[in-house]
Amino acid sequence: MGTHGAHLFSEIDKLRVQLLRNVQVGSDCEGAEGEISHREILTRIEGVILGIVTSLSEDEAPVLALPNRSSWANVNFDSAIGLQMSSRRSVTAVRSDCPSSVTKFAQILKIMSVIYRLVQSDSYATKRDIYYNNTQLFGSQATVDSIVDDISCMLKIPRRSLHVLATSKGLISGDLCYLEEDGTRIDCHSSSAAVSVSSNIGGIRNIVSSAKFVMIVEKDATFQRLLDGDFCAKLSPCIMITGKGVPDVNSRLMVRKIWDALHIPIFALVDADPHGIEIMCIYKYGSVAMSFEAQSLTVPSVMWLGLLPSDLQRLRVPEEALIPFTKRDESKLNSLLKRPYLTGQPDWQREMELMQQSKVKAEIQSLAAIAPDFLTSIYLPNKLRYGGWV
């Protein structure tokens, strides 16, 4: 591909110019986090506690009102932001005098007290630290994870500002260097090993990169294969990131951080199945559960590079590499087609309708049925050279 090097990414360069024209000066999400002072965070927590004390003084059972983070009815779609929690959202009452909710009430107060001390002392803790602080009360790590997000939503404060960190599961590699909050220099250039996504994305600074694009890779197995093949160095300077399936918040924050810093095209490489499409939509449009933080978690410019349902026909992927749809696949695809954000994505709709008609799905690994190195040597280079994304 050396002789074609000057022309290889002409489509991507054109796309980058277009993206830069559309970029608004300034970043809402970066500003929002910096605007909330320690004093303001403490004041909001104190306000909740004052409400509880007032109820007790009036001989009433204290009640906490948590915004419902699981209902589509509480979400609006904004094409510039993604799924955003509505200001007129329904709430769930967590009562202190109800047997079914008294434990959750106690859990919320305990975690709020931990957060209060962390902010006061300007120190940090992981969600795992909080769980082991009182395993008997919380019962599971998932309970802590959910309640921290509930508190963040209730107080209208990003989780990072609450000084609660989450252990990252994502990996990143490619043409990227930056400084962590403590001054540690991170270099992602190594072709043999990826770097774990930071647990404190807000503290990252001094991002340096000459990457032409970012590629989100759905699965760790595909990511490792591209890493082993030194994909970024052989093809063009780029950045690869994987959330190892459904992405954690830190992986999503990292993609947004890179977008804010570099404004380069961001592509998604996912399986040609409803699950892969939904994962891509989480990066692009966000999720219902985290819609209250949409501005810092979504990148609406994400493009679908592959694996496209139309690729399966165009490339004549062998039938033995295709997987028949299950009832669950049909249900998930029907649900996706009804999502509010698809009305503005006719190309995505066509691809998904093609999948619906064919009733087959395929993993990225299915391309190996054409040739062992088809993904890295032919599929991705040609897609990126000729603009084969939607």
Rank of each mutant, 00 (worst) to 15 (best):
G2S: 06
A6L: 15
S10R: 12
D13K: 05
Q18M: 14
L19I: 13
L19K: 12
G26V: 11
S27D: 14
E30S: 11
E33G: 12
S37E: 10
S37C: 07
R39E: 15
R39V: 02
E40W: 01
I41D: 03
T43A: 14
R44Y: 02
L50M: 11
V53I: 13
V53C: 07
D59F: 13
A61G: 11
P67Y: 11
S71A: 15
A73Y: 07
D78F: 03
S86F: 08
S86V: 03
R89W: 10
A93F: 08
S100E: 14
T103E: 13
A106H: 05
Q107D: 09
I108S: 09
I108R: 03
I111H: 02
M112C: 03
Y116L: 01
L118V: 01
Q120V: 09
Q120I: 05
D122T: 10
S123E: 14
K127A: 07
Q136N: 04
A142W: 06
T143W: 00
V144Q: 10
V148L: 09
D149A: 11
D150S: 14
D150T: 10
I151Q: 03
P158R: 11
P158M: 02
V164T: 03
A166T: 09
G170P: 12
L171G: 03
I172Y: 09
D175G: 01
Y178P: 05
G183A: 06
H189N: 04
S190K: 04
A193M: 02
S196T: 08
V197A: 05
S198P: 06
G202H: 10
S210Q: 15
M215Q: 06
V217Q: 09
T222Q: 01
L226N: 06
L226E: 07
G229M: 14
C232E: 00
K234D: 09
S236V: 05
M240K: 02
K244S: 12
G245S: 06
V249T: 12
L253C: 14
M254S: 12
V255W: 05
V255L: 14
K257Y: 03
W259I: 01
D260Q: 13
A261Q: 15
I266S: 10
I266K: 08
A268F: 00
V270G: 07
D273W: 08
D273R: 09
I277H: 09
I277M: 15
Y283K: 04
K284S: 03
Y285Q: 07
G286L: 02
A289L: 10
A289K: 14
F292W: 07
P300M: 11
L307I: 12
L307H: 02
P318K: 07
P318G: 09
P324T: 11
T326F: 09
E330G: 14
S331D: 12
N334G: 11
L336D: 13
K338F: 07
T343I: 12
T343R: 07
Q345V: 00
W348N: 07
M352G: 04
E353N: 14
L354F: 06
M355F: 05
Q357E: 15
S366P: 02
S366R: 05
F374R: 00
S377F: 01
I378D: 08
Y379R: 00
L380E: 04
P381W: 04
K383L: 01
L384W: 02
Y386D: 13
G388F: 04
